[in-house]
Design a protein around this nucleic acid. Structure first.
Length: 270
DNA sequence: ATGACAACCTGTGGGC
DNA sequence: TGCCCACAGGTTGTCA
């Protein structure tokens, strides 16, 4: 479910309700996430006060004076605030109780997500990540240079976290459509001028999705429980076989790249 | 270094 | 209604 805009939406949703709050009690019902939750997470968290929240790639960081909680939502995770008397449901694996009567509740059916305690805000998972897509560091110049030796499809390269973080399958499809580039074109055969368009498209599609609260697919809700509205704006993702919204002539085609669904317009994207 | 692919899980929707 | 299969928003690790 969650791509970068969903993670950022979650962060913005919970931030105002947890900063300055002290953790009262922590309940871990299932430690078996992508990596097992450390045995002393409860002990680390209880009594600690939240300083702030941050996001790096699709990781959410909750900083305490004593360390940081690193959370990844994986494919099906969500983190939301609920009243402390709300009964846990299936797949509600972790509850972090706060001194304002709310629980920060982690829910993740597929358990592809993760939760780590970091003593010093650094972790191997955060090493070797590429630049943030919305930073100035992520420029056409950078992407052009980086792609010179990559013969892999351009979609694959922009989804590579070592190149740039946070571009998941949905937004990769959307950005390539916006930039008019065929997803299966070799990255090193895309011109500098077209990378200018692509970088702008990636920034725009992510920024817009964040503004409207992420893309709601199935039951995604942000930290405040509100649904996102970006699904209404999708141009190609999930529209295979339907008419291209730009040329209104061609039918959108679907192919599979690295076992992920790719949708594009054979006429508008070259 | 790059790339192809399996793996980790559960839920859902389509076809029969 | 039920069964079986394919597929789903991500990332890591292994192997060629």
């Amino acid at each position: 479910m969650p791509e970068l805009p969903e993670v950022e939406t979650t962060r913005r949703g919970i931030q105002p309700h947890i900063v300055g709050r002290k953790v009262t009690a922590v309940t871990v019902r299932d430690r078996r996430l992508r990596w097992p939750i450390c045995d002393d997470l409860e002990q680390r968290l209880e009594g600690a006060s939240v300083l702030t929240t941050r996001r790096r790639a699709k990781y959410l960081l909750i900083d305490f004076e004593t360390g940081s909680l690193l959370v990844h939502l994986g494919m099906s995770g969500s983190l939301r605030l609920v009243a402390e008397n709300e009964q846990p449901r299936k797949h509600d694996h972790v509850d972090i109780g706060l001194d304002n009567g709310f629980l920060l509740r982690y829910h993740d059916p597929r358990r592809f997500g993760s939760m780590h305690w970091l003593d010093d805000a650094s972790h191997m998972l955060l090493d070797h990540l590429g630049p943030e897509p919305l930073s100035t560091e992520f420029s056409a110049d950078y992407l052009y240079r980086t792609s010179r030796k990559r013969s892999a499809p351009v979609k694959h390269v922009i989804m590579d976290a070592k190149v740039v973080v946070g571009v998941g399958n949905i937004y990769a499809n959307e950005a390539l459509f916006m930039a008019g580039i065929r997803p299966d074109r070799a990255a090193n055969k895309v011109s500098k001028a077209r990378y200018e368009l692509l970088v702008e498209a990636i920034k725009q599609v992510l920024a817009t999705a964040i503004e409207v609260g992420g893309t709601t697919l199935r039951d995604f809700v942000g930290g405040d429980g509100k649904a996102g509205y970006f699904a209404q704006s999708l141009q190609v993702y999930g529209r295979a076989g339907e008419l291209c919204k730009r040329c209104k002539d061609q039918t959108l085609r679907e192919i599979r790249q690295s076992n992920r669904s790719t949708v594009f317009c054979p006429s508008c994207q070259r």
